[in-house]
Simulated assay, not measured.
Amino acid sequence: MFLLILTCVLICAALIALVVVWQRTRRAQPGLAQEKALYAGFIADLDRRLTKGDIDDAQAQEERTQAARALLKVSEATTESGQAKPLHGYIALGLIVVLSATLYLFVGHPAQEDQPYKKRLQAWTSLAQKTPDVLPPQAMAAVLRQGHQAHAKEVGYWLFLGRIDMLAGNNYDGAQDYEKARALAPDTFTAWSELGEALTFVGGGTSGPEAKQAFEKALKLNPNDARAHYYLGQQALADGQYEVARGHYNAALNTMAPNDVSRPQVLEALKSIDPAETAARAMSGRISGMVASLEAQLKADPENADGWARLLRSYDVLGNTAARAKARAAMQAHYVNRPEVIADILTKAQTRVGSEGAAK
């Protein structure tokens, strides 16, 4: 205890000493230095004018007096604004150190009791042993995680912990749990399927490449995995692959029990395909009409740089890579001697369709 107090006092003294040194060695205010330089220049010019006879002695004395008064005012203002109150600073610094040491003595000293979290964890553990159903997922996850070393090689432990973490909203922890289960049993389709779901949640609801790979692996191990079919259907729907999405949703429904709680969600996703496909076809039709109009305009006026950008962008949306390559080649051939225009067109072609007006 004495050593701790002595250490705090020494730290406080060292900080105060540093402040004192800084106060004594800090430089003059730059504003005052600038005014002094201007004053010296003014006096030199005043002496030159007096020597040439441009002004008499009385006028020179008056101007010299006014300049000196102005410099004095600047000096006083700078001193007042820059003057520190070191005593107040030292007192505040000392109080901070003392309060910090006091706080540590009450809540952080090694001799004190354990933090409240450990007591809560003990209470949760006791409750989990008696009535686990009443324990919230967050608390249950904390209780189960205590056994991560004793059950490190058990697939079932990591799968169950992963499900609890997902219920608790610990999506990243859940993904880590399923990854451990997958590593222990790479031929268990559930580990792959639940890993893909966790990765989808980590990605904000989007199945990235890793999640998609996990779902595909799950289906290879078990073609009737409804979870994998559902999420792959979601990804296909987002990519505009409507038939693929229908296939996955129907496969999921065929493997689900009539009373499965997830069945309405899959049915709703299946119903959403038709309006999405209709809207996509309408958009494609509008874009195709715009493309035809742009092609005609560019044939008549190839100097329409914005038209070339919209044409390339439209081909990107339609997914017509061959037509886009042909249009780009025609555009580059027209602007072959103006590479800066080509670069500008290609940059504009990367913007979102609809951000510019339709072709006139």
Rank of each mutant, 00 (worst) to 15 (best):
L221Q: 08
V98C: 06
P30Q: 01
A296D: 14
T7C: 10
Q297K: 10
R352H: 05
Y157F: 15
R246W: 02
A329I: 01
G233A: 07
A279R: 12
E35S: 10
A214P: 03
I287P: 06
K36R: 12
P137W: 03
T255A: 14
R163P: 00
K119F: 12
Y117P: 09
D187I: 00
G354T: 05
L199H: 05
V261K: 15
D316T: 04
A128I: 05
W192G: 00
P302S: 15
K73F: 06
A28V: 10
A329K: 14
R69W: 03
W22V: 00
Y172V: 14
P258L: 05
L72G: 05
L32C: 04
Y39K: 03
N250H: 12
A252W: 01
K118L: 15
T347P: 02
A67H: 03
A359C: 13
I43R: 04
G354Y: 09
V97W: 02
R26C: 03
A279V: 07
Q213S: 11
E76W: 05
T25Q: 13
A128E: 01
S314D: 00
M331I: 10
A218N: 03
T255S: 11
Q112K: 13
A111I: 11
R163V: 01
K212G: 02
L71F: 00
T347I: 00
A269S: 15
Q234P: 03
V291D: 10
V261Q: 15
E35R: 11
L318Y: 01
N254E: 12
A309K: 00
A309P: 06
K85L: 07
R338E: 15
E356G: 00
K180E: 01
L199G: 00
K118R: 14
A150D: 15
M290L: 13
D187G: 07
G205E: 14
V202A: 04
R182N: 04
R352Y: 02
A292Y: 05
A33D: 14
A280I: 01
A214G: 03
E80A: 12
P258V: 09
S288Q: 15
R163H: 11
A330W: 11
G31L: 01
A185C: 05
G53T: 09
W308T: 00
R310P: 04
G156Y: 09
L105R: 03
E243R: 10
G203H: 04
R246Q: 10
T102H: 07
I11E: 04
Q234D: 13
C8N: 06
E277C: 08
N224Y: 02
L253Q: 04
D165E: 13
R48W: 11
Q34R: 14
G285L: 01
V317F: 06
N259E: 15
N222P: 04
K36V: 07
A152R: 13
S207G: 09
T188N: 11
A139N: 13
A198V: 00
S284H: 04
V21L: 04
A28R: 13
L237H: 09
R120P: 12
A150T: 12
G357V: 09
